[in-house]
Design a protein around this nucleic acid. Structure first.
Lengths: 148, 148
DNA sequence: CTTTTAATAGACATAAATGTCCATTATTGA
DNA sequence: TCAATAATGGACATTTATGTCTATTAAAAG
């Protein structure tokens, strides 16, 4: 069990990381992305759609189309990816169930949770796709196309 | 949305925090715990059962029975509560989907995730129930019993 | 224009998390 | 022993997350 990342947000990160490592320039179709990243193909399509809507990817239909990064990897922090699939912590949610809970009227868990939630956001904001470049064995793309 | 805590683990924390704040010595029945903490009564019963099985609470049936802390609040870290409801991070799970993923053969997300996961575990291990004492307006227990 | 490729949309299926209900068992006090 | 209290166990219902399938739409290439 992962406390931080839902399956969906893991898939989103995986696909983005795989894309930037294996095909930082050219676009890749959903099927290849699925085979490469190991994310279930049809489910991945939905995740990719959300990443397009969030302007992290651009998509093109038809032959030679697929998905490509919408901007420079160094300008895509993990937080943007998590926000695209609704997996970014809600600053205003009180784990204790209080309607109004803030630093002035904190619930018993508030101060403590603010700390660990900030750690998470700090991580998500300061880590970006560029940080993952070169961390995958290269050449997987070529292998994929040799197969087909 | 909370990235860290499932609804169930929130409930577990709430109930424990409420108990230690409102009734550190005497036992409280599930119904009162539910009313006090705002956790759905029947669902709470199941959560309490898991806390009993994890030796964090002791239960007694019958009149005057209920649930009480099994040990000193300072000896009940949040990590124990999360473990009791299976909400503690699995050290061996790879978010990238690799079967074997460790510091020798790390996936592209490994190093980064290890950091934030350690932050979480550090928080869960070093925060305990005693740290929440005095953070709730007192006297709720009396009010509850005045009602009934 | 036709064929092939590939994204998009939406229906549907399954599994997991959350929530409710009720019968049973154990304990207490009268 | 009886009545009331309260945990326990398990069935069931609902919702959310995850996963699969198919038809449609758009683009490219001959």
């Amino acid at each position: 069990m992962h406390p931080f990342l839902s399956q969906t947000s893991e898939y989103a990160l995986r696909a983005m990381v795989w894309l930037v490592n294996e095909s930082p320039d050219a676009s890749v179709c959903a099927k290849d992305l699925s085979r490469g990243s190991g994310v279930p193909s049809h489910y991945l399509s939905k995740v990719l759609r959300r990443l397009v809507l969030a302007d992290l990817l651009v998509s093109r239909k038809g032959l030679g189309g697929g998905f490509a990064l919408a901007r420079n990897p160094s300008e895509i922090p993990f937080s943007d990816i998590l926000k695209a699939v609704d997996a970014y912590p809600d600053l205003n949610r009180c784990a204790f169930g209080w309607g109004a809970c803030n630093s002035e009227h904190p619930c018993p868990l508030h101060d403590s949770l603010v700390g660990v939630a900030d750690d998470f956001r700090e991580w998500a904001d300061s880590t970006n796709l560029q940080d993952t470049v070169g961390k995958l064995p290269v050449g997987v793309i070529k292998k994929l196309h040799a197969d087909s």
